Simulated scan of single mutants.
Amino acid sequence: MEGRRRFGEVLVSQSPYPWQPWQPGQQQWRGMLASHADRERAVDVLRAGFGEGRMEREEFEERVARAYAARTVGELAVLVADLPQGPVPPSLPAPYAAGAYQPLPRPRTNQKAVGAAVCGLLCVPTLGLTGIPAVVLGHAARSEIRRTGELGEGLALTGCVLGWLATAGWALVVVLLAVVSVAVG
Results as ranks from 00 to 15, higher is better:
residue 7 F to I: 01
residue 8 G to E: 15
residue 12 V to H: 06
residue 13 S to M: 10
residue 14 Q to S: 11
residue 19 W to V: 05
residue 22 W to T: 13
residue 27 Q to E: 15
residue 28 Q to G: 13
residue 29 W to K: 01
residue 30 R to V: 10
residue 31 G to V: 03
residue 31 G to A: 15
residue 32 M to F: 02
residue 39 R to N: 03
residue 41 R to E: 12
residue 42 A to V: 02
residue 44 D to R: 11
residue 44 D to V: 01
residue 45 V to Q: 15
residue 49 G to P: 05
residue 51 G to I: 00
residue 57 R to L: 15
residue 58 E to V: 14
residue 59 E to H: 04
residue 61 E to P: 01
residue 61 E to A: 13
residue 66 R to E: 15
residue 66 R to I: 02
residue 68 Y to H: 13
residue 69 A to L: 15
residue 69 A to D: 06
residue 70 A to M: 02
residue 70 A to S: 14
residue 73 V to A: 02
residue 76 L to H: 06
residue 76 L to N: 11
residue 76 L to T: 14
residue 77 A to D: 07
residue 79 L to A: 01
residue 80 V to E: 06
residue 80 V to M: 01
residue 82 D to T: 03
residue 83 L to M: 04
residue 83 L to R: 13
residue 83 L to I: 12
residue 84 P to L: 09
residue 84 P to N: 05
residue 84 P to V: 12
residue 87 P to M: 05
residue 87 P to K: 00
residue 87 P to I: 13
residue 88 V to C: 04
residue 89 P to A: 12
residue 91 S to L: 11
residue 92 L to K: 12
residue 93 P to N: 08
residue 93 P to H: 09
residue 94 A to Y: 10
residue 95 P to F: 04
residue 98 A to I: 00
residue 98 A to D: 15
residue 101 Y to Q: 05
residue 101 Y to R: 12
residue 104 L to E: 03
residue 113 A to E: 01
residue 117 A to C: 03
residue 118 V to G: 00
residue 118 V to T: 08
residue 120 G to E: 05
residue 120 G to L: 02
residue 120 G to M: 00
residue 121 L to N: 11
residue 125 P to L: 12
residue 135 V to E: 10
residue 137 L to Q: 09
residue 138 G to L: 03
residue 138 G to M: 07
residue 139 H to T: 06
residue 141 A to V: 04
residue 144 E to R: 11
residue 144 E to P: 00
residue 147 R to W: 05
residue 153 E to Q: 15
residue 154 G to V: 02
residue 154 G to L: 08
residue 155 L to W: 07
residue 155 L to I: 01
residue 155 L to G: 03
residue 158 T to A: 11
residue 160 C to L: 15
residue 161 V to T: 11
residue 163 G to H: 06
residue 164 W to I: 00
residue 165 L to N: 01
residue 165 L to W: 10
residue 167 T to R: 09
residue 170 W to H: 15
residue 173 V to F: 05
residue 173 V to E: 11
residue 174 V to F: 10
residue 177 L to M: 11
residue 178 A to K: 06
residue 178 A to N: 04
residue 179 V to D: 01
residue 181 S to T: 15
residue 181 S to R: 13
residue 181 S to K: 07
residue 183 A to S: 06
residue 184 V to T: 11
